[in-house]
Design a protein around this nucleic acid. Sequence first.
DNA 1: ACCTGAACACCGTTCAAGT
DNA 2: ACCTGAACACCGTTCAAGT
Lengths: 243, 243
Amino acid sequence: MVRSPSPPQERLSRTAIVDSALRLADTEGLDAVTIRRLASDHGVTPMALYWHFADKAALLDGLTERLLAEVRFPADPVGAWDEQLELAQNAFLSVIRAHPNLATLPLTRMLDSDEGLRVTENTLRLLHAGGFSPEDAAELGSYLLNAIVALVTSEPGPERVLDGEPRAAAVSARRAQLLSLATDAFPTVVAAADALADCRSQDDYYSRGIDVLIRGIVSLRDATATGAAPEAPAGAPASPTAE
Amino acid sequence: MVRSPSPPQERLSRTAIVDSALRLADTEGLDAVTIRRLASDHGVTPMALYWHFADKAALLDGLTERLLAEVRFPADPVGAWDEQLELAQNAFLSVIRAHPNLATLPLTRMLDSDEGLRVTENTLRLLHAGGFSPEDAAELGSYLLNAIVALVTSEPGPERVLDGEPRAAAVSARRAQLLSLATDAFPTVVAAADALADCRSQDDYYSRGIDVLIRGIVSLRDATATGAAPEAPAGAPASPTAE
DNA sequence: ACCTGAACACCGTTCAAGT
DNA sequence: ACCTGAACACCGTTCAAGT
């Protein structure tokens, strides 16, 4: 609340607004990111933001772009195709994990910024190099990216805005709720109450999630892409076969 | 707008409110579901709803429960384990596909209603029968369910609130945007512009998405669950090994 | 070019009352 | 038990001005 009430701001700018929106979302959740809140944090009238952004959707597009700009894909891809794919997916995952409150933004805004297009292109290119057509790569790539978001949103545990003592309280409340269920109707849920109330090991959870994803893609490729450039170096797609 | 301004309502009730909330979300999107809008649709004061629900979160929990109640799992599971898993996943998918505007609700509210717990129990039980421990099944199951939601949210095409002519306009605008990109920076995205702007075949898209998911799980099971009840009949878990 | 001021049509919610 | 009325602290956004 006493974040920076009315700092002697030198100037308003797109990047300054997006910067504070990112911090605000990280600390207080995406719902806290409002035009009026950002304006007051910058010691300015709400309407001032409308000179820099057409509307709130444009602001969220800017925020999404800022998030996706942090994704660092390996510059020179080496190793087997599935290893390259895993590295790329982990690059995306680590950024989403660092900003879990923003995880849902790319779900609908992936194609609405240059950085989102960059991430998309890299993913589709990798899939295409693995033998999928650009069209198949498009559907598979969109799904792959969103499944990684789903991995983060489905991480067991309470809302990610909570911290410290309120978080521990939420975890034990959830545990108690699940343990109180009828064991004949919900035997497996009761048996897994601890694991559902809070993630046991985040690293294990995520490495297994990525593992399942890659296994699925590889298995599909092996069953589908019969002889279609199965082990291309993935520098650039051999021939994009445009339209 | 002229939906049912002030019908001579007999009585307000939880189910009547949830019913109209479901219709409203389906036709106008989740954002249209507000306390005040529902109240006016029922010809009643906003505060009237607070007798039936503690707050808006409770209303959305009720809406989620209503949605998940539509999920019909096969009563007597027959066939191979992965076929059972696929049937169960398709049962969940078909409900989400029927209500795409509500797809994101189960992401955070799965454990907050009896119907959500029912869906969770069924999923975990199946995974447990496949050889995963209840804890592993919990993490895998949460992920599986959310990945199916991700499948729906990542279906290529414009927002699902749009229909008819505005939808076609959004599709061709997206297509034009993607085709106008620099082909040296975004060759694969440009090549897949059509597939990214609108889903080619929804049935193909979804059957492949489920396919990738099942393949991933099966591959993980074959690599992991070494000899641990690999082909149990899946009626009920052999021994829940509680705690 | 960049920001203010007043206003409009919305939100969820509390609190005190009515029947 | 079930609903109303007035009020509070919020939203995003338009439109007309200011400098």
